[in-house]
C-alpha cells in the first residue's frame, strides 16, 4: 500500500495543464481529489510517473446557473454540491446522490470532475449525468469540445477522453419545475459502492407518468440509461404491472460482475428493485 515514486506538477492554467499532459504523454495523469487515483496508486494498480494537480487552476471550481442550464466546474467537490442552494433547488437529485457517496472526508476532497472522468462503473455521478442529459466540456491540445455524458463511457475505465484532454466543466439542463426524482442506492455500508443503484427523473400529468428517464449504476461495465424501462412506465400510473415491466426491462440490460456484494443474479434482482423503488419515490415527489 505504498505508491511508486512520481513527479508532481501544479499548473496554474488549463492551457498549462494541457501542455504538461501532452508533453509528458501516457505517463502523466490529472490529479483532482485523489480519492480514486491515489488508492489505485497505493495498490500499484496505477503507477503514473507524473501527476498534474488541477487544484492550482482558478476557475475550475464553482456552480453557476446560465438560463436553464447549470454549469459545474470540474473541481467542484461533492461537499460543494451538498452546500449549494442552487443544486438543492434546481437539481435536487444531485444533492440526494452526493450524500450517498462515501463519507464526509471523501466528499471534502472528491470532485465531480474526477467522479465522472474516472470511468469506474461504481461511481454514482455518471449514471446521474446520463439521466439528466448532461454534457461534458473537454479541453485538449486540439481545442475544446462538448461530449454528451451518454456518449462518454466506453468500458470500465475507458472514456472518450483523448490523450492530453481534461474535463473542465459539466452542463446540466435543469429538469422542469415540479419534476419528481429519486436516487435509490443499495450498499452494504457507508463508504461502499452500490450493489446496484437507480436514478429516476420524471414528470407526472393527471396522475400518469408524462416523461421519465432512468439511469443505472454499477450493474454493467459502464453506467446505463434504461430506455425501455422508462418507456414501460410512461402513460401509466405506476401500477404494479407497469413497475414489474420496468424492473424486468431494466434487468435485461444489466450485466454486473459477481463480487462480494453478491452473485450476478442477486445484483440484477436488486437492480430491478432499485428501479421500482426509485420510480415510486420519484412519483410521490412530482407535482
Amino acid at each position: 500500500m505504498i505508491p511508486g515514486s512520481f513527479n508532481y506538477h501544479r499548473p496554474a492554467s488549463v492551457a498549462d495543464a494541457i501542455k504538461l499532459l501532452s508533453d509528458l504523454g501516457e505517463d502523466a495523469r490529472p490529479l483532482a481529489g485523489g480519492h480514486s487515483l491515489v488508492p489505485m496508486m497505493k495498490l500499484r494498480l496505477a503507477s503514473p510517473a507524473h501527476l498534474v494537480d488541477l487544484h492550482g487552476i482558478a476557475g475550475l471550481k464553482g456552480i453557476r446557473r446560465d438560463g436553464d442550464t447549470l454549469l459545474i466546474g470540474a473541481m467542484t467537490t461533492q461537499h460543494d454540491l451538498l452546500a449549494s442552494d442552487e443544486i438543492a433547488k434546481s437539481v435536487p437529485i444531485l444533492h440526494e446522490a452526493a450524500l450517498l457517496i462515501a463519507d464526509p472526508q471523501v466528499r471534502y476532497r472528491g470532485t465531480i470532475g474526477g467522479n465522472v472522468a474516472n470511468g469506474d462503473p461504481g461511481n454514482d455521478m455518471p449514471a446521474l449525468m446520463m439521466t439528466l442529459g448532461a454534457t461534458y466540456r473537454l479541453e485538449g491540445p486540439g481545442g475544446a469540445r462538448e461530449v454528451a455524458a451518454a456518449d462518454f463511457y466506453q468500458g470500465a475505465y475507458f472514456t472518450a477522453l483523448e490523450p492530453g484532454e481534461i474535463l473542465t466543466s459539466i452542463s446540466v439542463p435543469a429538469p422542469p419545475a415540479g419534476h419528481g426524482y429519486a436516487y435509490e442506492k443499495l450498499k452494504r455500508k457507508v463508504g461502499d459502492y452500490a450493489t446496484a443503484a437507480a436514478a429516476v427523473v420524471l414528470t407526472m400529468a393527471d396522475g400518469k407518468v408524462a416523461s421519465c428517464t432512468i439511469g443505472l449504476t454499477n450493474v454493467h461495465e459502464t453506467p446505463l440509461v434504461a430506455a425501455d424501462a422508462a418507456k414501460a412506465v410512461i402513460g401509466t400510473n405506476l401500477d404494479s404491472a407497469a413497475l414489474k415491466k420496468a424492473a424486468a426491462a431494466a434487468e435485461t440490460i444489466m450485466s454486473p460482475a459477481a463480487d462480494a456484494r453478491g452473485p450476478v443474479e442477486y445484483r440484477k434482482h436488486v437492480g430491478g428493485i432499485m428501479v421500482t423503488r426509485a420510480l415510486q419515490r420519484a412519483a410521490s415527489r412530482a407535482r
Binding site: D103, R188, K189, V190, G191, D192, Y193, D259, A260
Partner: peptide
C-alpha cells in the same frame, strides 16, 4: 480490504 471485509461504522 475494509471495502469487502465488513467493518461497521457508527451508521450501521
Amino acid at each position: 480490504s475494509f471495502m469487502d471485509f465488513f467493518m461497521p461504522t457508527a451508521v450501521e
